[in-house]
Nucleic acid binder design. Structure first.
Lengths: 195, 195
DNA sequence: CTTTATCTGGAACGTATGGTAAACTATGCC
DNA sequence: GGCATAGTTTACCATACGTTCCAGATAAAG
């Protein structure tokens, strides 16, 4: 009986994501989202109810996994050590922060001020996933003889996570590339080739 | 002839700083600042002209150097290596983000979205200062025989900077302490005792 | 075609924002 | 005691925000 929606929820979430990603939560208004979607605000409110829940839905659609460039290739790379280094090089390689900064979840984590429980949970689990990706890559690198056997894989993975997030902050702060490059060098040092 | 100001500029900047620090730039309104100062908005506008310039003045008064806990003690510590590790332990030691998160400049860097040239410059120079503090401490630790002589001090200092900023992001994201602790362990690994 | 349930668009609401204009008030010099 | 100068305040402006209400449009079921 009822009328049909003129848009799909997925499409709306993707469009909203573009803006949240580019401008952050606070700086994105529902009016901008509606315009970007080609709809009126009421339709969005009728569908999602609230700006905050729309944002959380957007985060959930984004996926629990962080989409840092090169991160997804980590799982199946034949040379995990090189793939790990490549993740860091891709972060600084573009030079500028291209369009919407970094991974949406990292952006969100950095801008997070008030402890929003729902958002915090999504972000935290994304970081744990990222840590797991790093750890598996380090383990595979060690078992393949790409790095020396003595490394503590868990500690290394967590340190890589800190290094990556710090690198994101530095990139956004516009420091010289030589400072960024040292982080990549440190990653190589942390993954020493077996002698 | 004229009437005298009922407040000093320094006092106003300090009061504004408290709010900017706690809530961030965007989430702090001029009304809140005026109330917190016990003045009316017009006086603030007459004195500083603009919210943005008030913020930049606040940043400048904060000082070019990052005030991460324990960082200032780095310069004169007798045991630089322990002091370095202590900087990281102090960051996670409090457990919770106490009142206004981290150092104001780090907060600002993380929330920085649009590339604001003035703000970016202050933040960048603060990070370079922080890197220099780290490097001097590493150099002193090496010359005092606290760490092995082979370390690349510049690379280590820059990596420490990335690690510290990443740690700040992780702390704010509410990850478990064991994940944070790994970053401190990594710092110890990066500063190996001479054998 | 009518009914019925949903969807859509536009107007509107209440509030908050950054910023301004003009009236008022205190100071110190003549 | 005036008077000029600067500081403070009150009131206001235009705009933007998140959100809601309501009339009209639209689809399928009877």
């Amino acid at each position: 009986m009822p009328r049909k929606k003129t848009f799909t929820i997925e499409f709306a979430l993707d469009k909203a994501m573009e803006l949240f990603w580019e401008r952050g939560y606070q700086s994105t208004s529902m009016r901008e989202i509606a315009d970007h979607l080609g709809l009126s605000r009421s339709s969005i409110y009728a569908t999602f109810g609230d700006k905050h829940t729309l944002f959380v839905e957007t985060l959930r659609r984004y996926g629990s996994e962080c989409r840092a460039p090169g991160l997804s290739e980590l799982a199946n790379a034949e040379a995990p050590r090189s793939a790990l280094i490549r993740v860091f090089e891709l972060a600084i390689g573009t030079g500028e922060v291209p369009k919407h900064g970094h991974c949406l979840l990292i952006n969100t984590a950095m801008q997070l001020m008030s402890t929003d429980p729902e958002v915090t949970q999504v972000v935290e689990s994304a970081f744990l996933d990222m840590e797991a990706s790093f750890r598996r890559a380090v383990e595979r690198a060690a078992s393949q003889g790409e790095v020396a056997g003595g490394v503590n894989t868990t500690q290394t993975a967590r340190a890589l996570l800190s290094l990556y997030l710090g690198l994101c902050v530095l990139i956004r702060s516009g420091v010289r590339e030589s400072v960024l490059r040292a982080t990549v060098d440190q990653v190589e040092t942390m993954l020493p080739a077996p002698d």
